[in-house]
Simulated scan of single mutants.
Amino acid sequence: MAGVRALQWLNLTRHGESTGNLAHRDARRAGAEDAGIPERDADIPLSDRGRLQAEVLGRRLADLPPDERPTLVVSSPYLRALDTARIALAQTSWAAPDGPRLRVDERLRDREQGVLQGLTALGVRRRFPDEAERARRLGKFYHRPPGGESWADLALRLRSFYRDVEADAPGGRVLVVAHDAIIVVTRYLVEELTEQEIMEIEKEPIGNCSLTRWRADAGGLRAVCYNDTAHLTAPGAPAGLGPDDA
């Protein structure tokens, strides 16, 4: 993909567990139609568990060899991602005081759901049955809910983002702190996958504070790890930080 060919390392992480993740999980288990989240999407904070996950992620980043440490760190402007970035970077010595500045880019925001925001799958079927049927016919990749974005729309703004990143990253080592959809669509772009391939991959939930990495070789960027949460369950990490259905 043009926009990443000059990078040496591309690292992505999802934000830590948020109160929104918990609300959606509880709503699904209760058979509710709406998660009942009071904040707008941009203002949903981390849970206490999410803050601990971000600390553990930071300790993994702190252990990176010097030639793998990010020279550019970019976060989604959404609170849950931005706080994850700040907490994680505070655990590293290489990020302060003279390390890479944390930048914010609105193109890394979560996928916009429009009128479906906050609804469970049950809520969508009951409140917007025609929209649920349209989504079934079009497929998840191309379906754009009213007022929202399709996965293809997300790919368009990420292509723009990565073109700019290629020019802005000294040494070509980037860390992106964002959302599950950003990670999945980045894989679609970097590995030049098909709609069918990425929709199959998308069935595996992206863990909070997981790490996904690509490294440059003669043929371009090659996957090192995807959705890796080993640091959250490693010896010495607080218990209960590993992935669940949030």
Rank of each mutant, 00 (worst) to 15 (best):
R5E: 15
L7C: 04
T13W: 06
E17K: 03
T19G: 00
T19E: 15
G20H: 03
N21G: 07
L22K: 01
A23D: 08
R25K: 09
R25V: 00
A27R: 00
A30C: 00
G31Y: 09
A32T: 01
D34Q: 06
G36C: 03
A42W: 12
D43W: 07
P45F: 02
P45N: 02
G50T: 09
Q53K: 05
A54W: 03
V56C: 04
G58Q: 03
R60M: 09
L61M: 13
D63S: 11
P66D: 15
E68D: 06
R69I: 07
P70T: 12
T71W: 12
P77I: 01
A81K: 08
L82K: 06
L82M: 05
A96I: 00
D98M: 00
D98S: 08
G99V: 09
R103G: 12
E106M: 01
R107W: 11
D110F: 05
R111V: 13
R111F: 02
G114I: 09
V115E: 05
G118F: 02
L119E: 12
L122Q: 15
G123H: 05
R127F: 05
R127V: 04
A132W: 07
E133Y: 01
R136E: 04
R137A: 12
L138N: 04
G147P: 10
E149W: 08
R157K: 12
S160V: 15
D164E: 15
E166M: 07
D168F: 10
A169E: 04
P170Q: 01
G171R: 02
L175I: 12
I182K: 03
V190L: 11
E191H: 03
E195Q: 14
I198D: 07
G207F: 01
R213M: 13
L221Y: 10
A223P: 15
Y226T: 08
N227Y: 13
N227S: 13
T229R: 01
A230Y: 11
A230K: 13
G236K: 02
A237K: 08
A239F: 06
G242T: 06
